[in-house]
Design a protein around this nucleic acid. Structure first.
Length: 378
RNA sequence: GGAGGGGUUCCCGAGCGGCCAAAGGGGGCAGACUGUAAAUCUGUUGCUUUAUGCUUCGAUGGUUCGAAUCCGUCUCCCUCCA
């Protein structure tokens, strides 16, 4: 159940109650595709850096270790020692990212495993069954994330199919939640809005799925090739057609800048691989912009990544040391950067919540953006 | 003392008369990454006034229209024999 605590312009401060605890929104979900945040980050680490929701992936866990294994081990939460909410993405993004390895049909998607090439079929029912086995808090509907650019004709056809798939997801989820063997019988389901950069398709689709009584609504298929301006425009036009009394989730986004812009337009949930992937690649976030710790200028820089930051990296280590670890390919270097970046994101989300509560979101956003731009933007 | 092998651009290492400023690694420098096929990928890495330019393949002298590549001498390293 979503509780709207405060509105500041279109920005929402909310609380999403789940069987696994409440989520304070706006929130950034920390991405751990294969039931692990890449970079040797453990569940206790996530607690320490302020993570509220962990995100894992249906397709990847289905392949390895297999959702039946996770089911036998008591579900994802028990498997990875994480008591707070988990959201599982449906495999819909893999329809996009593994485009070379799949074929889309009305019944679902035929994949060839990226690991060993074997054939896998995943349709709405299969995705729901896998997610039920994983026993995540929130399951995502199985959709197609079409690329941008894509023709209007293609997007229309794809969105219509995604809508049909959504109805099948909903029916299957209802069935699974009543099964005796189901671990989480109150698993929630979010639908996903698509439509590329065609605002009218987006709006029409948003209206349709809004009538379907889902637990939350996501906007997918953005940040896959369009400009930032186009993304913001789509958000501005689409979010108003999604239910205010339900959480809105902008999938796969984004930079701190993107998040500020999207919160302003009413988005509650975010996730993105940036903080973890960039961390592994030595790019770290600060309030003065992004630093590439591989750069020679940090060779003897004795300062922490960011002065005053409370993360495990900044409390104890210098840029110089972390740069050395990264260059020496020591796992600790990546780990510290990932911890810092996730801490940075989670902290920024907490500040955003506070700013909305205080009715000062816009001035907070402006201040933040000014700071970012001073050191080169994200 | 004798016999043989070798010294190539930051490092390792290919090249063995012109297409060589010199393959390929590594290292260095920089860039990309948005529901993670990513601890990955890309670019760049002698100098400058960017040119039918200059310097460079242990040193030096030669042969040749032309040499990292052929020859002489020197020098250093490695292996084996005494």
């Amino acid at each position: 159940m979503y509780e709207l605590l405060k509105k500041d312009g279109s920005a929402k401060r909310g609380r999403f109650h789940t069987p696994h605890g409440a989520i304070e929104t706006p929130v950034f979900m920390n991405v751990g595709t294969a039931a692990a945040i890449k970079g040797a980050v453990s569940a206790p680490d996530l607690m320490e850096i302020g993570c509220q929701v962990e995100l894992s992936n249906t397709y990847h866990l289905h392949l390895r270790p297999g959702d039946e294994v996770v089911y036998q081990m008591g579900g994802l939460q028990r498997f990875m020692n994480w008591e707070r909410p988990i959201l599982t993405d449906s495999g819909g993004f893999q329809v996009f990212s593994l485009a070379a390895l799949r074929k889309i049909k009305e019944e679902g998607v035929h994949f060839r495993s990226h690991i060993d090439g074997h054939k896998i079929f995943m349709g709405p029912e299969e995705s729901m069954q896998i997610q039920s086995n994983l026993a995540s808090t929130i399951a995502m509907a199985f959709d197609e994330c079409p690329p941008i650019p894509a023709s209007r004709e293609y997007v229309e056809k794809s969105v219509a199919r995604t809508t049909r798939w959504l109805a099948r997801c909903q029916a299957e989820m209802a069935r699974l939640n009543q099964q005796e063997r189901t671990i989480n019988k109150r698993q929630l389901l979010f639908g996903i809005n698509q439509g590329g950069i065609y605002a009218d398709i987006r709006i029409e689709h948003a209206k349709q799925i809004s009538q379907m009584e889902l637990d939350g609504y996501a906007i997918g298929g953005l940040a896959v090739g369009e400009t930032h301006a186009e993304m913001y425009e789509i958000l501005e036009k689409t979010v108003p057609y999604l239910p205010l009394e339900k959480p809105t989730y902008l999938m796969g986004v984004g930079t701190p800048e993107n998040i500020l812009e999207a919160v302003e337009r009413g988005v509650d949930f975010f996730d993105c691989v940036y903080p973890s992937r960039n961390g592994r690649h030595g790019h770290v976030y600060t309030n003065q912009g992004k630093l590439n710790l591989f750069n020679a200028q940090y060779e003897t820089d004795d300062r922490p990544i960011e002065e005053g930051c409370g993360c495990p990296a900044c409390r104890k280590h210098s840029r110089s040391y972390i740069r050395h670890l990264l260059k020496a390919k020591e796992m600790l270097g990546m780990r510290l950067c990932v911890l810092h970046n996730l801490y940075f994101y989670n902290t920024m989300m907490a500040e955003i919540r506070q700013a909305i509560e205080a009715g000062e979101f816009l001035s907070y956003k402006r201040k933040k953006q000014d700071n970012f731009q001073r050191g080169g933007s994200f």
